[in-house]
Amino acid sequence: MDGGVRALSPGLPAVAAIEWAAPWLAPYRDPGEAVARAIAHSGTVAAALQDSKPPAVPDFVTQDALPEGQAYEAHIFRTRTVPTRDNLHDFFNGLVWLAFPETKRRLNELQAAEIARAGVGATRGPLRDALTLFDENGAVLDAPPALWEALVARDWQALFVTRRALWGQARLRVFGHALLEKLVVPRKAATAHVLLLPAAEGPLGDAALARCLMPEHMARKPFAPLPVLGVPGWCGANETPDYYDDPKVFRPRS
């Protein structure tokens, strides 16, 4: 191949298909495009991420650095390295590390503490389960109170139709790397678990979010489901109100 470009791993053909202009990728676009370009030269996701990371982010290593039988989160905490496979899932996990290093580190600290306390069993337990859910599928919403009220009530008509103009004052940040992976091929049913946070003063950035991840709060699974393609501007089809008349996606509160 020209210019020393190496063949991509069979697990990464979809990297070239990522639409970086998608609104949910806004926090990840600049590093994401750089890492995607680097993959063509490095041949591995770990090496491409490692070349782009700041000192505050743990080192990215290939998956074979994780010893057999070692818990993934405990290994990250002990070695300050992130075992990384050549697939989209771990590609997006790495991008979240680059964009939200303090939050990812806090999640890892809590996971590792629970593993040290209780070990690794057949089930994760309520705290680890909630931490994993947020890590994989979570999102954070900064919005006016009226939108929060509608979200918690699952009042989709109020959230997306009658109070639609308020979304101009809102910002939804997708945090979960599994959800980012799913959104490479967007489907209407793609749903985030929006973290219901204690009131925060000022903008909810990385450091503030990390401070809000308190074990006793997270163990209660404080999430509200949100079909993300219902967000105004995130899908052209949702410009008509009947987009939300789909009970399989926009489910009422039970």
Rank of each mutant, 00 (worst) to 15 (best):
Q111D: 00
M214G: 15
L141K: 14
P10Y: 04
C212K: 00
E109T: 15
R6A: 03
P31F: 04
A189N: 12
L183H: 06
Y28A: 02
W167K: 10
A38T: 03
V161P: 09
V96P: 02
P247C: 07
E109I: 01
T132N: 10
P31Y: 05
R80Q: 14
Q157T: 14
A21T: 11
H193D: 10
G202M: 11
I76G: 09
E201W: 13
A199D: 12
L49Q: 15
R6S: 10
P252L: 13
D129V: 14
D129T: 14
D155E: 03
A74M: 01
C235E: 14
L183K: 13
E19Y: 11
V96R: 01
S42D: 15
M1W: 05
T240I: 12
T240P: 06
R251K: 09
A178Y: 00
G43S: 04
Q111F: 06
G233K: 09
A199Q: 12
V15Y: 01
G202E: 12
L95I: 00
L196I: 05
R29A: 07
K104H: 11
E201I: 08
L107I: 11
I115S: 08
Q111E: 13
G94A: 11
A38P: 04
R29Q: 09
L49W: 15
A178V: 04
L204F: 13
E73H: 05
E149W: 00
K182V: 11
H75P: 05
A189I: 14
T62S: 12
E136T: 08
H41K: 03
E239T: 13
Q70K: 13
D64F: 06
R128W: 03
V140W: 04
E109N: 06
P186F: 13
P101I: 05
D2N: 15
L107D: 09
P225S: 05
H193T: 07
P232R: 02
L141G: 08
R253W: 12
S52A: 15
S9N: 01
K248Y: 15
D206N: 00
T191K: 08
D51E: 11
G119K: 10
A74T: 01
L159R: 00
A16H: 14
D64M: 07
P215F: 01
F250E: 03
L172F: 12
V152E: 09
R171W: 01
G121D: 12
R251D: 05
F100G: 00
A17Y: 05
H89D: 07
D51K: 05
R105H: 10
P67M: 02
H217S: 11
G11P: 06
T84C: 07
K53E: 10
R171I: 07
E33L: 03
F250I: 05
H217C: 15
A16D: 13
I18A: 04
V120E: 15
G168L: 14
L166D: 07
A47C: 11
F92P: 00
D64T: 06
P13S: 01
A192Q: 04
E181P: 10
T162Q: 10
M1Q: 06
D155Y: 08
F223V: 04
D64H: 15
Q157H: 09
R251I: 14
H193N: 10
P126W: 08
K104I: 07
D51G: 09
H41W: 02
A192F: 01
Y244F: 14
N87G: 15
L12S: 02
K188W: 08
P215H: 06
K188Q: 06
G202V: 06
R124P: 02
A16R: 10
L226G: 00
